[in-house]
Simulated scan of single mutants.
Amino acid sequence: MLYGIAAATAALLLAALLAALLRVPALRAGIVDRRLHRRQPLLGGVAVVTVTCLVAGVGQWTAVAPLGEGVDRLLVAGALVAALGLVADVWRLRARVLVAGTAVAAACVVPYDETGVLGGILALGWIVVASLAFKGLDHADGLAGTVGVVTAFGVGACAAAEVMDGLAVLLSVLAAALTGFLMHNWHPARIGLGACGSLFTGFLLSSSLVFTRAGYDLGPSAAVVFCVGAVALADSVLVVLARGLARRPLMRRGPDHLVHRLRRLGLTPPGSVVLLGAASFSSVLVGVLVHTGWTGEGAVLWVAGGALLVVVVLLGIPAQESRPVESTQVGGQLRVRNG
């Protein structure tokens, strides 16, 4: 317990410090988010990944908080996925490369002995979908980090209920590192998570949930999995439906996510993130209660119904179309405006 508190505190402080230090190098190297009108550096994910692996690795190496069987392999696979994401941040990679790389990493960590063949295939698919869905949340200041912190605590509670102490400590370290990163990512963000950090977080959370549900029946496991990832999944479904109905390419970025449509309703950027963070907390709490047996599987219907209602309602709200950006040099300063 004491090590877990100390590790989480160290992770929070180190992530906050490293994210601040990496901002200038990212700007100078041109590793910025090309979707935004402002130059937002993308090495915040490197801070989260480095600190999480470092603090968890120290616990494993000193045997103070061993990760447990298979969890060390999970962390290594997550770091490799993060490396692939970093490549995507520096040089653009096709979506199928990210899918293939995440799938290979997932195939190496699924505990097939406990899940069985069918369960293992479904678990692999869940890890890939959840990782990419979480990457999709990294489009608004503070959103991916907020949902990541809430989800990490939820999955950590499930791991603790299964007496997987090493995994619970790892997830608490991840939550603390994301919290330190959020100090610089809250609106207006000074640094972004990027594909490196978002893929790593999504992969670690989804894989950890697979570990905690290994050996359980598929039905209850599907209920828990859906509740834990409800916000990211709802965002992905909304985007797929919106772009499909508008006959726009699925991979073409646009302001058609949950946050964008909530802002069209009049919410501020921080207000939208807080609302989705609260929604994530509610759905994750239901997932934890189902996992621990405090409530039945029928509770997932409330989460599914709420997610479906949100998607249907927000789908009817027109997304703001992107407009070309023009930049001019005025008085030695670069001014950017929408065309």
Rank of each mutant, 00 (worst) to 15 (best):
G306K: 01
A304E: 08
L275A: 15
R252T: 10
G331I: 08
D235F: 03
P255M: 10
L258P: 02
P324D: 12
L309N: 08
V312T: 13
Y216V: 09
A278I: 14
R335E: 13
P318F: 03
P220C: 12
V288A: 08
G254H: 03
F226V: 12
R335G: 01
S221G: 09
A319W: 01
G229M: 11
F226N: 02
A234T: 04
R323M: 11
A242N: 11
L276W: 04
P249N: 12
P324N: 09
V290Q: 00
H291E: 12
V259L: 01
R247K: 13
A214N: 06
A319N: 01
A299Q: 06
S283L: 06
V336N: 11
R243G: 03
V313T: 05
S327L: 08
V300S: 06
R323H: 12
A278N: 05
L285C: 11
W294H: 13
G296K: 12
V313I: 11
S221Y: 04
R247F: 03
A230Y: 00
E297D: 14
L218F: 15
S322P: 09
G296Q: 09
V228M: 14
L233M: 11
F226K: 02
L209M: 07
T292S: 13
G229Q: 11
S221N: 04
R248S: 06
L258W: 00
L250A: 14
G316I: 07
L241W: 10
T328H: 08
A222Y: 02
G306L: 03
A234V: 01
V240E: 01
A234G: 04
T328F: 09
Q329K: 09
G316M: 01
S322R: 12
L285K: 04
G277V: 13
T328L: 10
R243T: 07
R213F: 03
C227H: 07
H257F: 05
A230C: 13
P318T: 12
A214I: 10
V286R: 03
L241K: 06
V231H: 00
Y216H: 13
V240G: 03
A223F: 05
L250D: 02
V225N: 06
L238C: 04
V330G: 02
T212W: 04
V290A: 00
V286H: 06
S280I: 07
M251W: 14
V310Y: 00
G316K: 08
V259H: 13
W294R: 15
W302C: 15
V312R: 12
P270A: 07
L315I: 05
